[in-house]
Simulated scan of single mutants.
Amino acid sequence: MSAPTGTQYIITRTTDQGEARATITELAASLREFSIGGVDLVESYAESAMPPFADGIVLAPWPNRVEDGTWMLDGEPQHLDVTERDRNNAIHGLLRNTGYSLIEHTASAVTLGATIFPQHGYPFHVHTTVRYELVEGGLRVSHTATNLSDAAAPYALGTHPFFKVGDTPVAQLTLTMTAATRFESNERLIPTGEVAVAGTEFDLSAGRSVGELDFDTAFGGVEVIDGVAARLTAPDGREVRVTVDENFTFIQIFTPRNFPTLAGIGQVVAIEPMTAAPNAFNTGRGLRWIEPGAEFSAAWGVEYSE
């Protein structure tokens, strides 16, 4: 019987830390598994399951939410499908339920493609690709979006990985990230303002235990040092680092306590690089407009050290 997420693309590479291995799914190009030297670095889900909480999927042409699924284009309202019905939002883009086509598959890398066709709420034609490549000490993920329309297309990109460090309980991990601001949100998780982080409970610059956090929060002005935007550190010193290029200036931190891990219900932590803020189709915060025939590219990745 085939998996509900379609073909499972497995890539491997021999590294100084042992074998690196990742599994990427046909559906939504989800990063379903990733390990180095037998140490699991993302929250996996069963091959027989759908990605819980959007685990590992690509978010395009917007991450996070569009309020009421409605935005304005040249003075005319555009109505996207409402896909978060309890909050009446359109969430996580238009490729969440799309199967990606294989472009290239080598031992250590896979490139997949998916097209966003013109539709109600998004009258644009955009072809996207994502390439997962195992590198020494980690994983590099590269994205492109090419506008096939005859008008500039609004576009934003995100991804939704949940990280871990082997068998260390997630609550015992320390999350470190320096950001200038966070987005205050209403009960529908739509931003109502942007405020400074320094000196507040949302200041992660000195590191905080994940077990203390109850976040579903977007941050702006993320400080990137040597490519690293956020760190997740175990008590024994092992560390996962999320790297980003200059396009990923926002990060969502999500720490639900009801995630169906393979070991049972528990707390997890998502570190979600985003090129735009939540509700960007309405606020314009970070939103790109790709000209006809032009290409937008962005990259992020994961580093692991023992």
Rank of each mutant, 00 (worst) to 15 (best):
G138A: 06
R257C: 09
Y9E: 00
T192F: 02
H120A: 13
T243K: 01
V42E: 02
D216E: 09
E47C: 07
I265V: 15
T159Y: 02
H143M: 12
T111Q: 03
A90F: 10
H143E: 10
L175H: 11
T25H: 04
L232P: 04
P61T: 05
T159I: 03
Q119A: 15
Q119G: 14
D214W: 07
E184P: 03
F163I: 15
M50Q: 10
A90L: 06
L80W: 00
H105L: 11
V170G: 08
G113C: 05
N247T: 11
D16E: 14
G220L: 01
R87P: 00
V165S: 05
W300R: 12
T111H: 05
W300S: 10
H125K: 04
F124R: 03
P77N: 10
E194H: 12
A234C: 01
P161Q: 09
V170Y: 01
R182I: 08
D203C: 08
L175G: 05
G207Y: 14
Q267Y: 11
T176S: 15
Q172N: 15
R238Y: 02
R87I: 10
L148C: 07
G207H: 05
D68C: 12
D40S: 15
D74F: 09
F183S: 07
P292C: 06
V269I: 15
R285F: 02
T192A: 10
G6I: 09
L102A: 04
F163H: 15
T5S: 08
P273H: 07
W62S: 01
E295S: 11
H105Q: 13
D81A: 15
S142L: 00
D236Y: 02
R188E: 01
L112K: 10
S30W: 02
E239V: 12
I271G: 07
T178Q: 13
S108Y: 04
V244Q: 08
L189D: 02
A230T: 04
G18E: 04
Q78P: 01
G199C: 08
F53Y: 15
I271C: 03
F53G: 01
P61H: 07
G158K: 05
G237Y: 07
E295A: 12
G75M: 11
Y122G: 00
E33T: 15
H127E: 15
V269M: 03
T98I: 11
L94K: 08
T128R: 03
E291V: 03
G211N: 07
N97S: 13
P51K: 11
F250A: 12
L134Q: 08
R241F: 01
G38C: 05
L31S: 04
E303K: 06
A171I: 09
F219L: 04
V244G: 11
Y132Q: 00
G121A: 08
A298H: 08
